[in-house]
Simulated scan of single mutants.
Amino acid sequence: MDTRYKQANKEAILSLLVTVIYLIAWVVTAYNIGNESGILGFPMWFELSCIMSPLSFILLCWVIVKFQFKNISLEQTK
C-alpha cells in the first residue's frame, strides 16, 4: 500500500478524533457546569464551553498539525 494513503488515513482519524473529543468537551462543560460567575464575569459554563474549550482545542489542533501531519505530494508517482 502506498505510504500516502497510510498518512492520509492517519490524519483523517486524528481529525475525526479531535472533533468528537471537542464535541464531548463542549457538551460536558455547557450542560454540567453551574451558573456561578467565572474569571471574566460570564457564567462559568459559558467561559468553559465557549471561550476556554475553543482556545484549548485551537492549540491542540496546532500541535497535531505541526507534529503529526505531513506535507505530501498528491501527484501520481511512477
Rank of each mutant, 00 (worst) to 15 (best):
T19M: 05
S73I: 07
L74G: 15
C50A: 12
T19F: 09
L48I: 01
S53E: 06
I58E: 08
L60C: 11
V28T: 05
E36Q: 12
I51M: 12
L55R: 06
E75Q: 07
L59F: 14
D2W: 06
F69P: 02
V18D: 00
S73N: 13
M52Q: 12
T29E: 03
V18H: 01
N9I: 01
K66V: 15
Q76W: 07
K66N: 03
V27E: 03
L40S: 12
A12D: 09
Q68C: 15
V65S: 08
N32K: 10
A25T: 09
F67Q: 01
I39G: 09
I64L: 14
K10N: 12
N71G: 10
K78S: 13
M1S: 10
L14A: 13
P54I: 05
Y5P: 00
L74W: 02
K78D: 07
P54M: 06
L60D: 04
S15T: 03
A8R: 08
T3N: 14
F42A: 14
D2K: 05
G41W: 05
F57T: 10
G38I: 02
F46D: 08
I33C: 11
S73L: 12
M44C: 01
W26K: 03
L14E: 03
I39N: 11
W62Y: 14
Q7Y: 04
L48N: 00
I58C: 10
F42L: 14
V18M: 11
K66G: 07
N35C: 10
L48A: 08
W62G: 14
S37V: 15
F69D: 03
M44Q: 07
M1W: 00
V20A: 05
N9K: 08
V27H: 12
A12K: 08
S56E: 08
T3V: 13
T77P: 00
I21E: 04
R4C: 09
W45D: 02
S56W: 07
W45A: 04
S53T: 13
S56K: 07
I21G: 05
I51F: 01
Q7K: 02
V27K: 02
I33Y: 06
I58P: 04
K6Q: 11
E75H: 10
M1A: 12
I58H: 00
V65D: 10
N35I: 14
C61S: 09
N32G: 14
S56V: 06
I51K: 00
G41R: 06
E11K: 04
W26S: 07
C50L: 12
S49A: 05
Y31Q: 14
S53K: 01
I72P: 01
V63M: 15
I58Y: 00
N71V: 12
K78N: 10
K78A: 15
L23Q: 10
I21V: 11
L60T: 11
V27Q: 05
F67M: 04
V27Y: 11
S53G: 00
K66I: 04
T77K: 15
L40V: 11
L40E: 07
E47A: 09
L40D: 06
I21T: 10
T19I: 11
V65P: 00
Y5A: 12
I72F: 14
V28W: 05
F67R: 02
P43F: 05
I13G: 02
L23I: 09
Q76Y: 14
G34N: 02
V65W: 02
C61L: 14
I21N: 04
Q7S: 08
V28K: 01
A30W: 04
L74Q: 08
I24N: 00
F57R: 02
